[in-house]
Simulated scan of single mutants.
Amino acid sequence: MHHGVRPTGPAGMSVRSATEQDLSELVRMDHRLFPDMPYPYFALRQLFELYRDRLLVLDHDGELAGYALFATTADGARSWVLALGVVPGVRGLGYGRRLMAQGLRRLADDGVREVMITVAPGNAAACGLYESLGFVQVDHRVDYFGPGADRLIMRMSLPGWHIE
């Protein structure tokens, strides 16, 4: 079951599942969004093959303006948010929240019970967004992504979750 997207903000902005034709632009955008730790093309390609129905893009009149990637464990009980990013020109307008909400709705429809995410300890904007969606910090891991790349681990329970 797919949920409709309510038009808000700039005209022509919508959330949709990624397509194979999006991959090259998705990789370029990922390198802009996460210059210190971008996904290589081959990794995004493989993640697309595994999780294409849960790889959502923010489409602005045919150009990508953000994306979110959700990966669910084989037992279907837990999903990890592997990426969430919005390009600088449209940050602060609620599109990260919109990508997350759409993804969380799809995960809830899938019967996923909990969602996990990692966030850099200094990223107050991301922490605020995730907390507003119902995530709580459950761990602080030193060197989680390698030396000097600490991460907060956040978790939310999906049963009973809803968003306006």
Rank of each mutant, 00 (worst) to 15 (best):
L56S: 04
L152H: 13
A108P: 05
A65K: 10
R97W: 05
G85M: 14
L55F: 14
L58R: 04
Y130R: 09
L64R: 10
T72P: 01
G76C: 11
Y144E: 00
G146F: 05
L55K: 03
Y39K: 01
D75K: 13
V112N: 00
V86W: 03
T19S: 14
M154G: 08
N123M: 06
V27H: 10
C127D: 05
L55V: 12
R98V: 01
V115R: 00
S79R: 07
Q46F: 06
E114Y: 02
W80C: 02
D61N: 14
Y95I: 05
L104H: 01
D110G: 04
V119N: 00
R106D: 15
A68T: 13
L55P: 03
R105V: 05
L129A: 06
P35D: 06
G85I: 07
A68V: 14
T118R: 02
D22S: 08
D22K: 08
V138M: 12
R113W: 02
V57C: 06
L129R: 06
T72L: 06
A149R: 13
R32I: 15
F48P: 15
V87W: 03
T19W: 11
L152V: 12
D36W: 04
A149D: 14
V90G: 07
V27I: 14
L50G: 15
S24W: 00
Y144W: 05
V119T: 01
V136C: 11
L33I: 10
G76V: 00
L93G: 10
G111D: 04
L26Q: 11
E114L: 00
E131S: 12
L50I: 08
G62V: 09
V138P: 00
R91F: 01
E131Q: 11
I153M: 14
R98Q: 08
A126T: 00
A124G: 09
D30C: 09
W80L: 12
G146Y: 03
R78M: 13
A83Q: 08
R28V: 12
Q21G: 10
L47T: 13
G134P: 06
L133Q: 06
A83N: 07
R28N: 09
N123K: 03
Y130A: 06
D109E: 12
A126G: 03
L93I: 09
S79I: 14
T72C: 08
T19P: 12
E25F: 04
A74M: 11
